[in-house]
Amino acid sequence: MTQISRDDVLHLAQLSSLQLTDDEVDNLRADIANILGYVEQLGELDTTGVEPTYQVTDLENVWRNDEVIDSGIDREQLLALAPASASNSVKVPKVL
């Protein structure tokens, strides 16, 4: 069974941009260890020489003309969706 430490959970949370509460860290540690313990059975399968499958459309190289398709949505509509905006821009906290 995979051992998952508190630090492992905090590292995964950081990779996932999740600022977890302390209770969540403990609960998720147990859940993640159990789930990884379950999926590890896949290691039993011999996949030597097998190519991975990433998509199942049986389509290849779908091309289209490099033309702008009007979405029918204007800037005001999109800005209205942002939690904060000013001067025709989306407003965010100071970065630097």
Partner: peptide
């Protein structure tokens, strides 16, 4: 959150081959 973090785990360098790549090969089978 569980699913996002499991996803981050199986795609991490060091675990990618054993989990993600193995699952995609098993999918071929």
């Amino acid at each position: 959150k569980r699913r996002i973090m499991i996803g981050s785990y199986v795609l991490s360098s060091g675990f990618f081959d054993a989990y993600y790549q193995q699952a995609q090969k098993a999918r071929t089978l």
